[in-house]
Design a protein around this nucleic acid. Structure first.
Lengths: 155, 155
DNA sequence: TGACAATAAGTGTCATAACACTTATAATTC
DNA sequence: GAATTATAAGTGTTATGACACTTATTGTCA
């Protein structure tokens, strides 16, 4: 095995490829930012998954959305949306009712309380975004968003 | 409340600031990439936190590292490192022993088995990085890494 | 039309992450 | 040198996420 030479290379050149460096940076920065978000959402009694559900449902409008649709739109893969929605329904943030026409479906709707909570989060979230990204210029932020979008648009 | 006009603006202009756009993109892309990593590590019986611990310990060399040191170097904030290390010790990937000179300390070392596992993961991880980032040029990846690093270097 | 496939949602179970709290040991200071 | 503070690690409990499996309802087609 004797990996001494390889290890020396690793120490002076910590990344073996631009892709490795990008992946590591993305993991680190992504966690930093999402941890900050988690802390903020927690002040309002939400997990970040719950916050995203609220945003998704607000965007969906009065028709609501089914469980699988919500799951697919969530940022993170999340197998247990049913109970997530149940907890949110208990908290009064969403409402679920079985569709009488297609009794398989149980669309979920955001409630006025859920909308109000989103409104309440709005301003501190903007402040957090300024705190996290305010030292970058709009051009830099635009470039960052472009590159991140490009990463997701893999052929 | 009547947020109709504001909502219309939101629909046509989904992001209210470059910072909001960057944060959302970072969250989405970060999750995409770390989910892919999670799936890979799971094939080897590891969580991504465990993989990072192994990397940290390999980098630390023969002196090992204490629990708090490991916790601070981890990508994600992680309050429960003790039991994480316990599980890894049970799996034979690390070894812990209380320092006789300072009996508060229980430095943790990577074992040959842990090193071998890291080696085994190496090649599929490189392949994954190519799959995730191969469609970007080295210049684009370099720029992405720079910007992500800059985000973390907030004053 | 009756069997079978497809779709939507839900459940049981387990391991783990989160959080607050506690113990053990060493260093400091009066 | 006794009391106090600091440091390192560990523990108890709870809620949640992960995974595989199941149920309920509708659509399809032989």
């Amino acid at each position: 095995m004797a990996p001494t030479i390889r290890d020396e290379i690793k120490q002076t050149r910590p990344f073996r490829s631009p892709a490795e460096e990008a992946m590591t940076n993305l993991a680190r920065t992504g966690r930093l930012v999402s941890d900050a978000g988690d802390l903020l959402f927690k002040e309002f009694g939400l997990s970040s998954a719950q916050y995203n559900v609220l945003r998704i449902l607000r965007g969906a409008g009065p028709d609501g959305l089914g469980r699988n649709e919500i799951r697919d739109r969530l940022i993170t893969r999340m197998p247990d949306v049913t109970r997530l929605l149940e907890r949110m329904a208990e908290a009064g943030l969403v409402r679920r009712e079985r569709d009488p026409d297609d009794r398989r479906c149980v669309p979920t709707y955001i409630t006025p309380k859920g909308l109000a909570l989103l409104d309440q989060i709005d301003s501190p979230l903007t402040a957090l975004q300024q705190r996290l990204f305010g030292h970058l210029s709009p051009e830099q932020l635009g470039m960052l968003s472009e590159l991140l979008t490009l990463v997701r648009k893999r052929p």
